[in-house]
Amino acid sequence: MRLLVIEDDADLGPWLRETLEQALGGADLVATLDEARAALQVRPFDLVVMDRRMPDGDAIDLVSMLRRLTPRPSILVLTALDDPNDIARALDAGADDYLAKPFEPVELIARARAVLRRNQLDQKGITSVANLRFDMPARAAYIDDQPLVLPRRELALLEALMRRAGHVVLRESLENAVYGFDDEIQSNAIDAHLSRLRKRLREHGCLAEIKPLRGIGYLMTDGA
């Protein structure tokens, strides 16, 4: 799961990124619409949380671009504007939901999860490989129907691999799933995380395997 926060407030922006990251997955923060457009060209996002009033324009103008992306991210608009006409404009433009400031963290997370679930209704929400199952909307992994608890980055790696189970996932795609734009990535960091993930899977009796393809990426298979 990868999220993009578009917010120029120096206090609110980092708080939003941290709150959403703890609840849903890795998040990146940008402070202008130009930075948002650049970020969207670099990597795909599952959810975009945006403030309306940005230094270089109205974030609603970005929604049409988001709607054209494949896969299309869910869109949650945050604003101090609570006029019905402003709400209608955001939703008519293609936003999935609208949350007026101020708001409580629990409501923010609930709204974010709701729009993600709605956009995933027409997609395969649960993926299984051998005795390993991954519930995409809940971001939960199970081995033989028993919950598998993983550190945040290992969970992000497993999610990225399970989304494309049976297909090669490039190293760059795995790095994008795990790290933000501001993170320093050492050359062997992904390999180290994957090594720990593979060990945890084996220890819990997982029959699925993560196979490396040297210089290319990794493949999630049923071990056959």
Score class of each variant (00 low, 15 high):
residue 2 R to Q: 13
residue 3 L to K: 00
residue 4 L to S: 07
residue 8 D to T: 04
residue 12 L to K: 01
residue 13 G to D: 02
residue 14 P to C: 05
residue 17 R to V: 07
residue 18 E to T: 12
residue 22 Q to D: 15
residue 26 G to Q: 15
residue 28 D to C: 03
residue 37 R to H: 04
residue 39 A to Q: 12
residue 42 V to C: 02
residue 43 R to E: 15
residue 50 M to E: 05
residue 50 M to H: 04
residue 51 D to L: 04
residue 55 P to V: 10
residue 57 G to W: 12
residue 57 G to N: 13
residue 58 D to H: 13
residue 59 A to I: 01
residue 60 I to V: 13
residue 61 D to Q: 14
residue 65 M to H: 10
residue 70 T to W: 05
residue 71 P to R: 09
residue 76 L to V: 01
residue 76 L to S: 05
residue 78 L to F: 00
residue 78 L to Q: 02
residue 82 D to H: 15
residue 82 D to V: 08
residue 85 N to K: 10
residue 91 L to Y: 05
residue 97 D to I: 01
residue 100 A to E: 03
residue 105 P to C: 02
residue 106 V to P: 00
residue 107 E to D: 14
residue 111 R to I: 08
residue 112 A to W: 10
residue 117 R to D: 15
residue 120 Q to D: 04
residue 125 G to L: 09
residue 126 I to H: 11
residue 140 A to N: 04
residue 145 D to S: 14
residue 150 L to R: 13
residue 151 P to E: 10
residue 153 R to V: 05
residue 173 S to G: 06
residue 179 Y to A: 14
residue 182 D to H: 12
residue 184 E to S: 10
residue 187 S to R: 07
residue 190 I to P: 05
residue 191 D to G: 06
residue 194 L to P: 07
residue 194 L to C: 03
residue 202 R to E: 14
residue 203 E to L: 15
residue 204 H to T: 11
residue 207 L to P: 01
residue 207 L to Q: 13
residue 210 I to E: 06
residue 212 P to F: 01
residue 215 G to C: 10
residue 221 T to N: 14
